[in-house]
Each structure stands twice: as C-alpha cells, then as structure tokens.
Simulated assay, not measured.
Amino acid sequence: MRRPLNFACENAVLAATLDEAAGSTGLLIVSGGNEIRSGAHRGMAMLAQRSAAAGHPVFRFDRRGIGDSDGDNGGYRSSGPDIAAALAAFREAAPQLTRVVAFGNCDAASALLLHQPLAVDGLILANPWTYEDDCGDEGEAEEPALPPASAIRSRYLTRLKDPKSLLRLVKGEIDLKKLARGLSAMRKKPAAPAFGSLAGELDATLAEMFCPVTILLATGDRTAQAFMEKLAPSLAHIEANAGSIRIERLASPSHSFAGKDGEWLAERILAALG
C-alpha cells in the first residue's frame, strides 16, 4: 500500500510517499537534480512499488523547494538536513525497521556522500555527479559538450580494432593529427582528483566509509564516465581489493536507467537490500 505523508525539515513542510511493507530493511530514495519524488518517467515510483512487493518499505520525498514541498531549493549541496529529516520520518512511519539503505542517482548520489555521516546502514550510488555545476531538471545531467578523456580513449581503442577503420587509415581518410592526439591521450595515466574539487570530496568520503556501498555505473553515460575518469585510481583499488564497496557496471548510455535498464537497476538494489 502506498500512502502520502508530510514531515518537517527546519522551517519547511516536506511531502513524502511511503510504500508500505512488513520487512525490517527499508529503502530511502533520494531524488537527483530538480526531479520530484516520482522520478524521471515515474522510474522511482515504479522502483518503490517493486521493492515494496519484495517486502521492503520504501520512502521517497521532495526536498525543500521541489515538487510538493515548502521552502527554497538550495540544490544538492544544501540537502543534508532534508535527507536527515527524511530518515527520521521514515523510521517513525515504519517502526519495524532495523536497517535503512539509501539510494540516489546523479547529484543525489553525490549528496549522500557529501552529507555523511547519515543514519544509514548502506548506500547505493548510481552515476555520481562530479561536475562543479548542479545537475539539471528531472535528474538529467548538464555536462560539457565533450565527453571525458576516458570515453575518448575507449572510442579510439574500439576504432583501432575495427578493420573498416584500419582500411580508412590505409586509404588516407583519417586525420593523422587527430589520431596522434587520441593515441597520446591513451598513454596518460589517470590523476588523483584535484584537491578541493567535488570529485576530491567524494573520493575522500568513500575512503572513510564503513557501511556497505554499492556503486552502479552506466558506462555509456557521460556523468558516469566523468566519475570513472576522476576517481580512476580509487576505483581501481576498490575493484582490486574486495571490501565493503562494490562497483557494478552496465553497458548503457541511460543516465536514469530508463526502459529495460530499469530491470538491471532494480535487481541490484534488491540485492543490496538483502
């Protein structure tokens, strides 16, 4: 059963939705960008319905200044009080909870890291935002026109393995200067995130996390590509050393895991809920 409710956050009243279930592990969904709690194309509402059907209560909310909630929209960097108040309201509305796992996509994923410590028992972070500007409306990223260097290198590697591209090279149909720049970029080793940058903040927080963290990346999405580029050394260490942080990748360009990618997302979230 789904029911609406309200809760207080500082001087504002926030709107929320609880998908009820009997389980003791709940899912808190934090919306990204200026997306309302139903999500892009109602994706978060459908995810909540599926998770509740599997026995997990789900709490979604509109942060201050978004959707049906009062107050001013200060963006993801000021959403710490909203998330903390939502967690308290969730536990009050579903008193059987012994564990709460929080999920966020785009800058909501970044917010869940930036505002630590939070009273959660696990995090699920999808396509975390690492650009210095805010994520756009409906959780969709407003990235620079050019893809990250890692994406450019991947494209060049794919082309070099393609016989048709090699034939074009032999025929002189490929710009050798552009090819040389691409090959030069492939040789550069990823650097650590810049000190004081958003990526640096996320990297430092991940290094100190003690609760389980699942990172979900759509490898064709530029936001995910930027995250993989900027945190490459740390992600390589995480994948080489089994610990409390897990990384899972999906070959998809969908920032919000739309369409059939939603099934992959739901399966990973249910696995993290246990």
Rank of each mutant, 00 (worst) to 15 (best):
T214L: 15
A21S: 09
V101A: 07
F61E: 06
L5V: 03
S252D: 10
E140M: 08
L113F: 13
P144K: 03
D72W: 03
E248D: 07
D162W: 03
K161T: 08
S78F: 08
L112T: 02
L235C: 05
E20K: 08
L216G: 10
L27M: 07
V58D: 09
P148V: 00
A8P: 13
L169G: 02
A93F: 05
Y131K: 03
E142C: 12
K230N: 12
A141F: 13
P212M: 05
N73H: 11
A251I: 00
R153Y: 07
A48F: 08
W264F: 14
Y76E: 09
G80M: 05
R64Q: 05
I83V: 12
D72A: 02
T130D: 06
F227C: 03
L14W: 04
F103T: 01
A15W: 11
A88M: 02
A86T: 01
M186E: 08
R50L: 06
A108K: 12
A84F: 04
D68F: 10
L28T: 02
I215G: 08
G74E: 05
Q225S: 06
L97N: 09
R60W: 07
L176V: 10
L47I: 02
G43I: 01
G274H: 14
G65N: 08
A85W: 03
G23S: 11
L183N: 07
F257G: 05
A84Y: 04
A12C: 10
N73C: 13
A242D: 11
E263V: 03
A236S: 11
G32D: 09
M1A: 13
P193R: 02
R246C: 13
E10H: 03
I174A: 07
G182I: 02
L87P: 06
L202K: 12
L114E: 12
G104I: 00
D62N: 08
E239P: 11
I83L: 10
L231C: 11
C211L: 13
R168T: 01
N105Q: 11
A15R: 14
E138W: 14
G274C: 09
V101I: 12
G196K: 01
